[in-house]
């Protein structure tokens, strides 16, 4: 039996669509993991910085994302579930381009990418970048150095214990 020419032509597209549908479906895409890039992070009881810390999460740890709420992610790590701020994870290298964003202007976009989400929201990395250019006398390099120092969590535990302090 002869296969119609239109079928051969569109078969590739159909395959692609099925794949796209599968990958976009959260149920089939599997659990998403994210790597913690900031030091001294904890799982928090609530999605805000005043939440009670539940368990520490070291730099480099891979956590499983359960759900998200704005800039907060509910994650699972070593049997504990709690909230972590998006800032605890490495930022996306480049803002994701959305064709709708180009049509309607970046300010209205509500994408998940940190840079795009921050743009137009107030004092953002972009504002800092312009400020730095305007004020070369400010020493941001030293600020980066100060922020780059990380207290090793195992060392901190020993420090607290040796000094008879409360962990």
């Amino acid at each position: 039996m002869k296969v119609p020419a239109w079928w051969i032509k569109s078969r590739g597209w159909l395959l692609l669509l099925v794949l796209a549908a599968l990958l976009c479906s959260p149920a089939l895409a599997g659990a998403e993991t994210m790597k913690v890039s900031q030091a001294n992070q904890s799982l928090l009881s609530e999605p805000n910085f005043s939440g009670t810390p539940i368990a520490p999460v070291p730099t480099g740890a891979e956590v499983t994302v359960v759900t998200t709420s704005g800039d907060w992610l509910k994650v699972e790590y070593q049997g504990n579930t709690g909230w972590m701020h998006r800032g605890a994870f490495a930022q996306a290298e480049t803002p994701k381009i959305n064709p709708l964003g180009m049509l309607f202007g970046g300010g209205v976009q509500q994408t998940k990418s940190d840079e795009v989400a921050l743009a137009g929201k107030g004092f953002t990395p972009e504002v800092e970048a312009s400020y730095r250019q305007k004020h070369p006398e400010m020493n941001f390099a030293l600020v980066d150095q100060v922020e780059g120092f990380k207290v090793d969590s195992a060392k901190l535990q020993t420090f607290i214990k040796d000094g008879g302090l409360n962990p």
């Binding site: 990395p125 504002v127 400010m138 941001f140 100060v146």
Partner: peptide
């Protein structure tokens, strides 16, 4: 109100100003 990330960027710039005239 000012968000936590905005507070962070303000804090960095204040620190950069302090470090513009002080050594670490």
């Amino acid at each position: 109100p000012i968000s936590d990330s905005e507070e962070y960027y303000i804090g960095r710039a204040v620190a950069a100003r302090v470090l513009g005239t002080n050594r670490l």
